[in-house]
Design a protein around this nucleic acid. Sequence first.
DNA 1: GTCTATATGCGGATAGAC
DNA 2: GTCTATCCGCATATAGAC
Lengths: 212, 212
Amino acid sequence: MAAETKDRILDAAERLFADHGFPATSLRDITNAADVNLAAVNYHFGSKEALLIAVLERTTIPVNRDRLKRLDQLEAAAAGGPVEPEQLVRAFLTPLFEQQSNWTEHNFSWLKLMGRIHTEVDQELRAKLIGQYETVLRRFSAALRHSLPQLGQTEMIWRGLFMIGSMSFTMTWGASIMVTNVRAQRAPMEILEELIRFTAAGMAAQTGKSSK
Amino acid sequence: MAAETKDRILDAAERLFADHGFPATSLRDITNAADVNLAAVNYHFGSKEALLIAVLERTTIPVNRDRLKRLDQLEAAAAGGPVEPEQLVRAFLTPLFEQQSNWTEHNFSWLKLMGRIHTEVDQELRAKLIGQYETVLRRFSAALRHSLPQLGQTEMIWRGLFMIGSMSFTMTWGASIMVTNVRAQRAPMEILEELIRFTAAGMAAQTGKSSK
DNA sequence: GTCTATATGCGGATAGAC
DNA sequence: GTCTATCCGCATATAGAC
């Protein structure tokens, strides 16, 4: 039953962290929801913070692996030439959405949690998590610079930030908005397509120096 | 000294909520930083949550007033015709950045806090805050539909969400990124211009049904 | 209005029985 | 591996002196 207990804790923690945030979620909330003993978290994971890391890595590792695989394929197909910016944006965003494709109010916890992480976790813990993204960010920004040579490096950094912001906010609030606003109803993959169109257009927008 | 105490609490709370988040900040942290007595918060504001609302409203009210004023001017100038989407995006985003134009690591608390609110505060409290935005959102989305008639209502909702995501994430993390990455150095008003270019391009991106 | 002292409860973590 | 019982600190909030 050991493995099952661990997974039940991970599932409950993922959902509760996503819904209420990390500091606002107690171990008692988690162990009650998972229907396991209070002491089990510290037995299996060591601490609340280590539990958070385990929850995140369960998904970030395969997502980032998939991102790099897609980028490899695009660059191989381009044979040294630039890749379409929209293809790069797509390769970066798609693995996230595929991770949890049945995106309903009660079934998109990891996405929502990842959205939260960017704004909620303290700097120190965040630094650990960002380490996992180093390769991904480096390779994608190099590819984008190649395909959008008119962009300066500073512009690239800021536009990348804007893109991650759209993505993260959408993951955090998208499902809630679909619940409260019937007009917003869309399948997750349609929302992904909307997000790709929006961010690809933003990334490729004219730079400040040229005139309209 | 009463008014001064209240303001000192508001200033300290704004900075600490922004840096560490609402649940992770204790009243002790706040009253120590403000150099006032622990009991002063409950005396002046009633509760920790009421203090948060006071901190937010100190800025949201003038910002939203300014947004509507700018929109009034644009619509008056357009005399019933559509307003350029970029002008609408500019009118929506500028008041925020002007609110705290000296944007350095330790001097952009309110922006950062507003970025956090979208992801950190629980649904119930957020609903109260969103009430203040109702008029603003309704009027801006009507104006955008007028100037981008090819967008369906659903697409408009999602693109608005993407825009708010970019804005919110930039406010939360922009200053930290400037500190850790020298290449990202920019004046706040230049970042605002970058954000306007990015989001205006995204809002105006071709819709899904048309071909590239 | 401002302070000290304190009520009361929840938090993470652990000791030790089974 | 799982449980109960408990430690101990910090949280918000308030009572009541000044």
